[in-house]
Design a protein around this nucleic acid. Sequence first.
DNA 1: ACAAAAGTGTTCCATATACACCCATGT
DNA 2: ACATGGGTGTATATGGAACACTTTTGT
Lengths: 215, 215
Amino acid sequence: MADNYSLPDKVHVAVDVVLFTIQRSELKVLLVKRLIEPFAGGYALPGGFVLADESLEHAAMRELQEETGFKAHYLEQLQSFGDPGRDPRGRVVTVAYFALLPSEQTIQPGTDAVEAGWFSAHAAPALAFDHDRILAVALRRLQWKLDYSGVGFDLLPDRFTLSELQAVHEAIHGHPLDKRNFRRKLEAGNQVAETNEMKPTGRKPARLYRFIGPR
Amino acid sequence: MADNYSLPDKVHVAVDVVLFTIQRSELKVLLVKRLIEPFAGGYALPGGFVLADESLEHAAMRELQEETGFKAHYLEQLQSFGDPGRDPRGRVVTVAYFALLPSEQTIQPGTDAVEAGWFSAHAAPALAFDHDRILAVALRRLQWKLDYSGVGFDLLPDRFTLSELQAVHEAIHGHPLDKRNFRRKLEAGNQVAETNEMKPTGRKPARLYRFIGPR
DNA sequence: ACAAAAGTGTTCCATATACACCCATGT
DNA sequence: ACATGGGTGTATATGGAACACTTTTGT
């Protein structure tokens, strides 16, 4: 770490959170409406500045909670974005986070501070700052993680049917999957265990499963 | 992005660079000796503070160049580290970068500003700050990228033998690979093309290859 | 009875792994 | 001539992809 340079006190650090959920088998992302300039009236990812004594993760959780009322079920760092000029107010480096919310909890957000809402993740409106780019990176990461870890479970309640889980995967990848292949892979992965409970579906009842093992 | 919070002007932004190279079939990482407190006399990753009007990538390249004289062949963002307390001087969020240098260029670094040197990446000394953690993350990323992209080529001169390339993979993964399987996978990947040149090896000459196609 | 989603196996193909010998050169 | 690393093929195991019918319930 160089000590032979004076500190540039004008660089600020923010966090932004890409919170995904599933609603009616569609992948949604949480956006907030900006009330003030710049980009007033436009949509942006929830986020804000990091406080002097909190970790980056804490800042991400706090901003999400304060701005939208939601508490993410899964949170991981995505990438940092710091091009000069990405924020017209000054030099802001943002650490982007990627978060998931189980579908049961996606009630409409409490409009405490700002207007927030769920938008189709695959067809989101144009966003403020470089948030389009951040969203695109988050989407790719989500698709990737889905195949290589059990991250899909964080989008469902703790008891779920296999068809519901498959719908999550289909919504994220944007194309249909083969039911039998999907189930075989799940068995092999030892990530789900059946329960004794059945879910009445209106037609033939479906067995409920629960998540086990490491994600 | 929250506007209802005053900006915490005490958060500084730095970059740190994990520069890998191959020397005598061993994976090495570039470390600098710290001349002043904190951690004076200890080793650390090269890095320093981001200037007000440069991109994060630019800061990474600049600090590497200034501190060690090296110019990375490949540079990509790794992850950001920002726990309060990671730097005893104050609140510093660092954006870590991951970089590669072809083995031909790993002459001893110019000791302009600080003492720098190459250390075994798998058995590096204890590092200042949280740089051990950063190095560990970089190593995992390197191993991962090696299998899923042509990143290994950035560690070799632009003409290389297949045995040299295999040695790079073995050094990074830390275990031997099967020669025929390794070569078959390369062919399938369409990432290398043979040249007409042969490299005299002291024994049977080896064909030189060059990198083609996307990495 | 019928509509609708739940559940269940097999075949085929591609990719990964294990393994051993001859070749060309410099000394 | 011999020592050294360069170069080459085959057989087996494993994982992914394609594909259709029966079952159970509510109406």
